[in-house]
Amino acid sequence: MSASSNIVIAARDLGIKYDLRLKRRRTLSHTIAQVIRGDASGSLGRDEFWALQGVSFALERGEVLAVVGGNGSGKSTLMLTIAGVLRPDAGALTTFGHSATLLTLGSGFQPDLTGRENIHLNAAFLGFGPEKIAASLEPIIEFSELGRFIEAPVSTYSTGMRARLGFSIATHLEPQILLLDEILGVGDASFKEKSSEKMDELMSRAQAIVVVSHNPQFVRDIATKALWLERGKLRALGDPAAILEEYAAEIRKARQQMKAVA
């Protein structure tokens, strides 16, 4: 953490492990059945799954990292680890005290609460105090264009209204490190334009940006570095043009093979 370095995110030999025996929504009967069959008594290593393994990289101030890879390659896991939601099971990752927040569109809304109350709740979940929240409420409401509907419960909103509110909240609560999961514009044409403008503004102010994308063309213009994940491991890291090109070529190849089979 020397003062001379401009590094904002650094990961070394990062590993995230999932224990498949601790799947979501498991029930007692399932476990009892496992114990009876003798499954659960086996070694712990048997049902482990490394969603990320041996991943090292560093990102400097002002850089934009594009993370590419197929489904299940560990992109989302990497984002959640940078955001601090997941704790490394091996190696380490640090953001040097910068706040990193995943921009998602209002999946944490409480349907019974009004739009205004949900803004408040979302901001509170990010750790903001009452003054900061009060200051950001009006800009968020204005940007969302929800007008008087802001006082109505979110359960009465259309999908578009929810997306607009979610986008407004996410982009107005300025994290220092921006983590994007392919959201760069929502709503109708005019709102889309406004939201991509907002996105540009946000990106220009962020310390660093990490964008996850399935679509290499999409991130080519903005990325200064690319990271290719394959089954949880680092396949390539470095110059975005070369890596994105190679990744795109591989997608094309895979598609052609699919067609050939069909």
């Binding site: 370095s5 590094i7 990961a11 090292s56 560093a58 190696g91 990752l93 640090t94 390539a236």
Partner: peptide
């Protein structure tokens, strides 16, 4: 087209402390 390994120059130059 086989840039499979990470460029060491791109690896973290700083020491990433392991969690205590």
């Amino acid at each position: 087209m086989t840039s499979t390994s990470a460029d060491p120059a791109l690896a973290p130059a700083v020491d990433v402390a392991e969690a205590p």
